[in-house]
Write a protein that binds this DNA or RNA. Structure first.
Lengths: 211, 211
DNA sequence: CCCGGCATCAATCGAAAGGTGGAGACGTCG
DNA sequence: CGACGTCTCCACCTTTCGATTGATGCCGGG
């Protein structure tokens, strides 16, 4: 018999850690070797212990977030795989996590069998994505025109802060006409027709960060 | 020895249900008698089974939300207590849940002992609030002018979706004049002077939920 | 019972924002 | 080189917003 897959659970909710542990320890080939309540702790434990897969939440109460921790973990040589298990499936969450090197991305509403299967897949170095996340990635590749330019993003951020076009122009050293021109392009790319709708879309797409 | 406290777990995440079960069943005086994966199911089971406390999540993937389910459960005679256990601690979540009749409000990052203690407190009909929720309620009482009314919140949500005042009026069966009137009050309460700034402020205050 | 808060509606007016259709300058890349 | 995308700017016109002022009906607490 081969060695069991050694797991590290990283989540700031004790209840979720207990749930993951309960679900995964019913599988004889999986073994939970440690738990981390913060992202920093997860990075430290991943470096220190011999684990195969880290189950990583994305949001922690304070400090480093899950994507940053994922990047820190996967940057080391001989790093364990990171399987993101979270409640959030927006662009703002998924894309940075995958860019940071996550081997898989599951939502917490996944049934236990799927979770165990994803852990084994991750241990083997292959990717499991939740269907909604997979859809998102495919769409991202299919519609490259969606990306905003640097300048457009700058304008959109200021729009989201509630500034008028005039003020935005002053802030970026542009004329009112230029700001409007950028906005027209932004609306077209985001498929909206007003500044408030653009802000809503931007928040949804993770272009704008907050909280 | 008295009868154990009989519990119903309502959460759409299997992992969270497993975690709550694992944490609570280590307590000899607590007994999990059923689990519900949807709010509707929770209402049905609460009516049908003899349970003392329902542990209720607030957000379910589709259909009824936790606050609505809480209202439905507590509306019946001889209803069990409802203890809300969730990840979200914004005004938009806590206030409706408490209004709906929740006996307590805990966050999922609560340590297991605190969770068990809150369940016993709820079974006895007394209230346990997470510190952040308690703070919020106190602040709410101290600064009543800041709170948006129900109608104002409805308008603001539609503003955040990018609708024009005209469209908002159609959606809520109001005239344009009424919508504008609500907006004036919203701006005054939030200390802003444009719809986009209002959306930004609302996002920051947690009045508006994205995704 | 009266006051205040809430929700509803109205008219007006100036200031923004949005739609359309341009144009020039610059850098990249095949 | 020429095509393309980006960033910058302009004019004209329509629509929408926001500010102001004022009014009505309803309800609940002091």
């Amino acid at each position: 018999m081969t060695r069991p897959v050694r797991l590290l659970l990283a989540d700031d909710h004790p209840v979720v850690r207990a749930g993951l542990r309960a679900v995964l320890e019913t599988e004889p080939d999986l073994e939970v070797v440690a738990e981390a309540a913060t992202a920093e702790q997860a990075v430290a434990l991943a470096a220190e212990l011999d684990v195969d897969v880290v189950l990583m939440d994305l949001r922690f109460g304070a400090g480093m977030n899950g994507a940053q921790a994922t990047a820190a973990i996967t940057a080391r040589p001989d790093a364990p795989r990171v399987l993101v298990v979270t409640t959030y499936d927006t662009d703002a969450d998924t894309l940075p996590a995958i860019e940071a090197g996550a081997t898989g991305y599951l939502l917490k509403d996944a049934p236990p069998e799927e979770l165990a299967a994803a852990v084994r897949t991750a241990a083997a170095g292959r990717t499991t994505l939740a269907p909604t996340v997979a859809d998102r990635l495919v769409n991202r590749l299919r519609t490259p025109g969606t990306a905003l330019t640097r300048r457009e993003t700058e304008v959109l951020v200021l729009v989201a802060e509630g500034l008028s076009n005039q003020r935005i122009g002053e802030r970026l050293h542009l004329t009112l006409a230029t700001v409007k021109s950028h906005l027209v392009h932004i609306y077209a790319k985001l498929g909206v027709d007003s500044r408030t709708a653009a802000v809503a879309a931007a928040v949804e797409l993770g272009i704008i960060r907050r909280q």
